[in-house]
Design a protein around this nucleic acid. Structure first.
Lengths: 214, 214, 214, 214
DNA sequence: GATGAATGAGATTTCATTCAT
DNA sequence: TATGAATGAAATCTCATTCAT
């Protein structure tokens, strides 16, 4: 399904490395390693050498596969967003009612956190200053689509009387959004809870609150 | 009330600059500027030069006031935590019932975000890897006290039947905690809402959920 | 007098180093050293470290004064061209007849070689691939003005019957131009000949040839 | 006729690749490509990758044919000089009078420029710093023979009264030499002029000057 | 003959920090 | 208090070269 900025990943028509041919498996493998280190230590604090160490090679060797440290980051985030939107678009085009949509989006989000934990953590920490850069344009594009999808869902819910109308809708949006995504900072796949289970509990709290109904 | 690590680690005894004498106002002013830049760009991405630029001086001149970039960070975070615990301790020693305690803690938190927005943002982004360092020991101390205060409150609430007992309590803890503190990433003081107002809405969502009760 | 691209040298309004304040004497001194090394070893083969060595400092220290190796090159060439055009413009606005103009331009050229030997040598070797870069735009601007000044002079001379009309004028232009400027590759100031003396002999050859008149 | 350093230094005996066997045609082809890139971008600025790109292969593959980037350069220049001296020696052994010798040498030079444009351009730019290296010894040998051939011719001409005696002979030598060889920097084979035509015009200028005889 | 992946040395650049003035 | 100049360590990146396949 359509994902943001149909760029097929490698726009680099310029003068440098081909950056397409080198075996995609090795590439993906290395990106996975890099993502883990970025998530763990932060993008800036991660030296190319650390990534190389983790991959069992020398720092310079990474440049056979990637143009730069930044382009690794770029590819990690882009891949994540592409898959995220695959999932989201599936939900959105299903035309569910607002509450079901919200539930599906939250569940899908936790699934993405499960599959792309590192990328999500990186996204959380770095996206704010990346959006300024032309190269990461697709981040703000995605952010806008994201906001639209959630806000619309909430608004529809309010209109249909299933979500409370006495709340500042943008505040509610941020509340739900953050609530879900920060989970990436503590979530460890293979831990006690499956993504679906966490989603269920989170939804329960978000929808019904933590206080006992009287 | 006692706050974590009462100033113990100032390292003054060594060979270097006095680092205390220079007018505390200028010091505070500079720390405020530094905090803004740190919050805006991230600690690692912030060069001493950028701070100096923002302060209208040269990079080297900052070293008259502070002995390192890290010690600025340290002082910013320590100051914030000190004040945070002043507030929290006031709440805790008031011996309110669980729901009132929760409300007071949340409200107090938004007030701190209002007053120390930059420091909170920095804390959110950087604390995870700082805790490893001996120098930032007080961060984990604070974190533990923090967790204890919130968890206890929630548990008491469950025991007293005011909070739902069907939730994973640690999940609920993280839910409330994150939900409140991420606000620092988008909150702009002087914006539409006062901290108290935001607190009220957040509490309403956290306690009662966003869905209409049937 | 007007020189090409009235850019007053430092266009850098961007985010980096001020690059204007640091004492201009030291700056000029360092540029002189750099120019010598560039001329001697070629721009690419010259490492920043070699320049720093020649200046008695560490490689990194150069970056206090200059943005990059390339910006040193740029400033060296720009300074040279600015002064060159000061001289040329003086000649051109004097409205001499074609032969006097040619003599004055050649003499002025040898004076510039004498004063900016290194810059001229660099210019000879590097300008061809630099013109492609946007940053060195002024090189091609200058080249065009240069070509126009010389070609016009030659054409006027042909029209007035003082220069031969049976020659391909562009070939003659290149002949004179190259003949003069390659001298920078072997010229050593303080050697046997003053610039004026060399100019006289070159003019004699260019104007009357090396063969004995019959 | 003998040319400088008859192939002596091939270093084959060492431990490495045979480096001679692989089809000489492919070899020559690749050297032609390499020469073009060297001429275009400068030796240092040319990466092995660029050459490989131009040849439609990968960088590593070049090492099947040559044992280093430098040995390509060496072979290009040696081949050129070998052929140059074939031509020059033919002229010199013909025992022409000074003026005819000069004309023949100039014409021969333009023919070499026509056939080895890239190599000549490389020679112009790089020879100065290559002569220092033991491996390129033959460059200075050639230079010396070259200087001797030309200077002798000029001196004979002066003695016989066909070249002017009032000129600094070394200056005249450099004048003629540079005049001819810089042409390689702008000459494009297949352009308007044949080498012989350019030679004729250049000789006309060098011998008789560009001014109209009175 | 050529590829793909890597090495390792070295280049440019960045930046926290120092220190004499 | 602040400046200007420098240091030195480390970071990113480049590139000739190697080598198993």
């Amino acid at each position: 399904m359509p994902n943001p900025k149909q760029q097929t990943s490698k726009s680099q028509t310029s003068k440098k490395k081909a950056q397409v041919s080198p075996s995609p498996e090795r590439r993906r493998e290395l990106l996975g390693i890099a993502a883990d280190v970025f998530a763990e230590q932060g993008y800036n604090a991660t030296t190319v050498r650390k990534i190389a160490d983790a991959a069992g090679m020398l720092a310079g060797s990474l440049y056979y596969h990637f143009d730069s440290k930044e382009s690794m980051l770029e590819e990690i985030l882009r891949t994540f967003l592409t898959e995220l939107w695959d999932g989201y678009d599936n939900v959105l085009k299903a035309q569910l009612d607002p509450r079901e949509t919200l539930e599906a989006l939250v569940t899908e989000s936790f699934r993405e956190i499960d599959r792309h934990r590192a990328a999500v953590a990186i996204y959380q920490k770095e996206s704010k200053h990346l959006v300024a850069q032309q190269r990461f344009q697709y981040l703000s594009d995605s952010q806008q689509r994201f906001e639209k999808a959630w806000l619309t869902t909430l608004e529809r819910g309010v209109a249909e009387g299933v979500f409370r109308g006495d709340l500042d809708i943008r505040l509610a949006y941020r509340f739900v959004r953050d609530t879900v995504w920060v989970a990436a900072s503590w979530y460890r796949p293979g831990g006690g809870h499956s993504p679906e289970e966490i989603a269920r509990q989170y939804l329960s709290m978000v929808l019904d609150g933590i206080s006992v109904r009287t």
